[in-house]
Computed example of a mutant assay.
Amino acid sequence: MGGTEHLSVRREGATLVLTLNRPEAKNALSLPMLVGLYDRWVAADADDEIRSIVLTGAGGDFCAGMDLKALAGKGMAGDHYRDRLRDDPDLHWKAMLRHHRPRKPVIAAVEGYCVAGGTEILQGADIRVAGESATFGLFEVRRGLFPIGGSTVRLPRQIPRTHALEMLLTGRPYPAAEAAAIGLVGHVVPDGTALDEALAIAEQINACGPLAVEAVKASVYEAAELSEAEGLAAELKRGWPIFDTSDAAEGSRAFEEKRTPVFRRA
């Protein structure tokens, strides 16, 4: 699966690894990066051999936010990136997972800076791992700007409102330990090992039934927008069909036979 000049793509078994690759700019978001991200989200969902996605950054940083000059495509060869954005004005938002949700689990592996647009992309990841020296934050208000990548909506739904408002209104940096304490990330690991930890989590996901994994993820996000009663009803609607799959039968047989199940997405 090909990337772009600012996005590297590789496979690790059933995991697709996407690497933001502008280390000289702390992986600030550019148009080639965003086009590549969106195309890979879509392609991963269409590929049944991919069961999880890991998003990380090159050169010791995750993402330092938006590069407005690069987003406009100035100074870059190839008008096809600008053409893509013109044809789909929402492409950059979907690339940042603002209102696009892959059906495959997305795990973020963060080292170094993950600020502004980086913290906004992070909110679209399902599971988040950080190196102990990682830095998070939404700096927009310090520059008189607005974090328009979804943070005023999503962040208060993901962490306690008091912490979300403090992060949004002060624009201060948050070290990894504090980000974990408020629930922004789930794991803090030694520097340089975030990707290894994310891949280990991905392997655990990959060993599970893919239909079940995707249905569980979808149910969690669907229920977040519903009342408890509506969410419970929606859960049954999604969950019961999983019990009738061949994968469910295989999982039970493998348990009885004390072997590793072989799931076939059926």
Rank of each mutant, 00 (worst) to 15 (best):
L7I: 09
E49A: 12
V213R: 03
E256D: 14
G59T: 00
C208I: 00
L122M: 14
L195P: 11
E12Q: 12
T170L: 13
I159P: 15
C63F: 03
A25F: 11
K104D: 04
G2N: 15
V141M: 11
A198E: 09
A180T: 08
D48G: 08
A212L: 13
P147D: 02
A134C: 11
E132K: 09
K104T: 09
A64F: 08
E132V: 06
A233L: 08
Y81S: 05
A108M: 10
L18P: 15
F139L: 15
A125T: 04
D45N: 09
G150N: 05
G150M: 08
V213L: 02
A233W: 03
R101Q: 06
Q123E: 15
G75S: 06
H99M: 00
H187R: 11
W240A: 12
D61F: 01
R82G: 13
G239Q: 00
G149N: 02
H99T: 05
M1E: 06
A116S: 15
E166Y: 09
T245E: 05
A58M: 07
E197G: 04
A130I: 13
A177I: 10
L55Q: 05
A194Y: 14
P105N: 01
G137R: 07
S30A: 14
A207D: 14
T260N: 03
E256T: 10
A25L: 11
G65F: 04
V189M: 05
C114I: 03
I127V: 15
S219F: 05
G36H: 01
A194P: 15
F146T: 05
G186E: 15
L226F: 09
F139W: 10
R86Q: 04
V17A: 04
M96L: 11
P89F: 00
V129M: 06
I107P: 13
R259A: 07
G36T: 07
H92Q: 07
F263E: 01
Y113N: 06
G171L: 08
E5I: 10
G75D: 06
